[in-house]
């Protein structure tokens, strides 16, 4: 459909209608913080070691925030009305989320690669993938505005139970060595859960329920 030249594009309208600029500023601040404070070692309580403490480098905490910022930007000012939006608007939302998320992941990995080491960069990327999945799931369940709640509630669990005598446990996907099968499998599974949660909008859930009801009604032979 032709647009008048002074009419803003759908993308610009979309970005202005939610907090994408604020999110980008937050991501930028966090990206600056990573090389500055990332090496700071924080002592946290744990159940798994002799002395009851585990040392967590600050980059692991900052990376969590970079991962949940994109999901926060899915928060719509239109509330539930947005569930009735058309295909183009949905596609636009997906494109913005995907671009923002992939861009953040690349930026985060590159910064960690330059500031720390390739080992840490790969581990950070894996952590990002896992946290992203948790934040999108949290956003879908509690509302996009609360995308941070899932990661922030999972973080103490990983810190307190994630360490053993001989290092991080297999499911501590943020702290395992860079090339670690189980940790990558878990992070990928979390990503898949996140993608599935994002796809399962009200409309699709309704369709799925309707389809299941139809299956139930078919008489067994």
């Amino acid at each position: 459909m032709p647009r008048a030249s002074d009419e803003p594009s759908p993308l610009s309208l979309f970005i202005r209608s939610r907090r994408v600029p604020a999110g980008l500023i937050l991501t930028a601040i966090l990206c600056v913080l990573i090389p500055l404070v990332g090496r700071t070692l924080l002592q946290m309580p744990t159940s798994g070691t002799d002395d009851g403490t585990v040392v967590v480098p600050a980059w692991r905490l900052v990376a969590v925030a970079i991962a949940f910022a994109p999901a926060l930007c899915c928060q719509s000012p239109f509330g539930e009305i947005e569930d009735a939006c058309g295909h183009d608007w949905r596609q636009l939302r997906t494109r913005v989320l995907a671009t923002y998320s992939i861009g953040s992941a690349i930026l985060l990995t590159a910064i960690c690669w330059v500031a720390f080491s390739d080992e840490i960069a790969v581990a950070v990327l894996r952590g990002f993938i896992g946290w992203w999945g948790i934040s999108v799931l949290s956003g879908r369940l509690l509302g996009w505005r609360l995308s941070w709640a899932g990661p922030l509630a999972t973080l103490p669990v990983l810190i307190f139970w994630g360490s053993g005598q001989s290092g991080p446990r297999w499911w501590e996907f943020t702290a395992r060595p860079a090339i670690d099968g189980p940790a990558w499998a878990l992070a990928t599974a979390l990503l898949a859960v996140g993608v599935l949660a994002y796809t399962a909008n009200t409309w699709r859930r309704h369709q799925l329920r309707a389809a299941l009801r139809t299956v139930e009604r078919v008489p067994h032979r």
Binding site: R19, T40, V62, A69, W148, L152, L155
Partner: peptide, 17 residues
Amino acid sequence: MFAAAVAGLGWLLIALY
């Protein structure tokens, strides 16, 4: 919208440091 998230993680970083 970011206040809660920033407060949560910011506190953890500051408090632990």
